[in-house]
């Protein structure tokens, strides 16, 4: 059973006190859970949060599933998030993601490559439409104006 560390729990309590509506504390708390749970939010983790925050699990799950920055499944060491919203979508974001997945022998978003190194996901607008298509790896700065070659090269360089 997943449990937040004592500091994690203290963090969540602090967030709860911080906002007028306690639902506002869901996002920062989910981030914390994701960080402490190896990069994804498990159902047990939501149950734990629900108890800690006294917010129904369904409410937390709604937030978690709405935002693409929360992972619903275990991820690889490098989690590659390709934007597929409007501009990136029009400039080949989806195709780019499919290409990268194929190159790494991954069947679909959410799956982890055999060596455990990569996982991929489509994400909603990263806010960098002028340099579409873009991708983000873990929580690092964006890689912009991508082409298939450029993106593949970036991934190849990752240890």
């Amino acid at each position: 059973m997943f449990q937040l560390s004592d500091e994690g729990k203290a963090f969540v309590k602090k967030q709860l006190a911080r906002y007028e509506q306690k639902e506002s504390a869901i996002i920062p708390s989910l981030y914390r859970v994701q960080d402490e749970n190896g990069g994804w939010v498990s159902p047990e983790a939501i149950d734990h949060l629900s108890e800690l925050m006294d917010i129904p699990a369904s409410r937390i799950q709604e937030v978690m599933k709405f935002y693409t920055m929360f992972n619903q499944r275990p991820r690889g060491k490098y989690h590659v998030q390709v934007c597929t919203t409007l501009t990136c979508g029009m400039l080949g974001g989806r195709e780019l993601c499919s290409f990268l997945m194929k190159e790494h022998g991954v069947k679909g978003p959410g799956e982890v490559s055999k060596d455990g190194k990569f996982s991929f996901s489509h994400v909603e607008c990263l806010g960098s439409c002028d340099t579409a298509p873009v991708m983000q790896i873990n929580r690092e700065p964006y890689h912009e104006s991508l082409t298939e070659e450029k993106a593949l090269k970036i991934l190849k360089e990752l240890k």
């Binding site: 369904s58 409410r59 799950q61 909603e124």
Partner: peptide
């Protein structure tokens, strides 16, 4: 009882 929710977007 809060069973139901709207999931995904």
């Amino acid at each position: 009882t809060n069973e139901l929710g709207i999931f995904n977007r």
